[in-house]
Design a binder for these strands. Sequence first.
DNA 1: GTGGTCTAGACCACC
DNA 2: GTGGTCTAGACCACG
Lengths: 124, 124, 124, 124
Amino acid sequence: MILIDYRDKRPIYEQVIERFETLILSGGLEPDSQLPSVRQLAVELALNPNTVQRAYAELERMGYICSVKGRGSFVQGEKSLERKKREYLHHILKDSVRSCRMAGMSVDDIREEMEQILKEEQGV
Amino acid sequence: MILIDYRDKRPIYEQVIERFETLILSGGLEPDSQLPSVRQLAVELALNPNTVQRAYAELERMGYICSVKGRGSFVQGEKSLERKKREYLHHILKDSVRSCRMAGMSVDDIREEMEQILKEEQGV
Amino acid sequence: MILIDYRDKRPIYEQVIERFETLILSGGLEPDSQLPSVRQLAVELALNPNTVQRAYAELERMGYICSVKGRGSFVQGEKSLERKKREYLHHILKDSVRSCRMAGMSVDDIREEMEQILKEEQGV
Amino acid sequence: MILIDYRDKRPIYEQVIERFETLILSGGLEPDSQLPSVRQLAVELALNPNTVQRAYAELERMGYICSVKGRGSFVQGEKSLERKKREYLHHILKDSVRSCRMAGMSVDDIREEMEQILKEEQGV
DNA sequence: GTGGTCTAGACCACC
DNA sequence: GTGGTCTAGACCACG
């Protein structure tokens, strides 16, 4: 379910976060479902519980999950997630456009390049 | 011309790099023009010369500038930059598409969202 | 294992890089094995940790090793190294041929001289 | 006749040296012919006379030319050059073989790779 | 403990 | 004056 890449430059807790983020956004983890406990996941991934704890805390701060003392951690409800998803998509794309604009690209250049990338994506 | 944000989590030298990268790509710094000397920029930004040096070294490795002992540092010629520019544009957009795809978005969702963002951009 | 030659004109960090490069390519350091820590090697070679750090950073950029915060530095896996090895061989030889050509040697002169060198090599 | 590349990382005096080295070895400058005076070359290339002087001094030390106070600088005689040429060719190739060997390549690997490079060279 | 960043200040080669 | 290397010693993030 989750694979840690020790070659990856990013800290481990960040890898855990990103993995859960895409799992949740893509529907691999259903809304309201329960996550493995901190201890259990730490054992499974052979990680320090601190590391898992940190990832869960951050995921809660980001609005993806919700941890309740003594009960466990749960994926947020569907309504919250829908909003999150749209935010995420929009934010990523807007950011890339802003970067390109700051590098002096015209809107048409971006549109053209983007269309080509999306076609490749569909081809594959 | 260049502003260091000490609250930014990224290292200072990386901020310097990014600033010059966009300056060069956007034409704010013309091809073949000379950059401020390492020491001079260090004074201006209140940084250690080593930090500026590191940024310049990286910019050279990335193909944006060219430093020569005893003479100074210069923006690369127009031809090298054109290629760099296209690389940059493509890389940024491809990355954002990959992120969206991993979050479970369809190609059409991305295309639609992107078109809307670009329209806003033109409207402004 | 590693010897620094202070009479060598090349910078120290480059000597460290080259030594590790050949160690890794020749199999003296096995794929996935761990390198000495930055600090430890610095003590062993009586160098500043910064200098070792720089060598390691460059080796990572070159694709020979992989450094992870909090865990250490490791030789790249076998697959990455195989490619690196072929690149290295080709680059070294191509360069020498180019030098000879620019000095006015014919391809046949080079071939003949090379064959003689290789025979000596096998004889020894 | 000589072109200085200000983008080149090597010091200028070294570029001058290398240019003369290949010119002499390739026969572009005949044995016993006279070189331009230090001052004249400095003017032509828009260089500091010190820089040219340094190059000439080094070329003399390397055995390519011979400078006589009050008379000028001259390419060495044919006999000296023939020896130099063979030395150069042999040295360059031997060095590359040594590098490859130290990286763990077999003699046959080197021979094969070399043959391929030489064929490309002839094809072009 | 690990790698990575930064500062301060020195020295070198080159032009 | 320029870029480049090195040391000494500090601090941070990560596990």
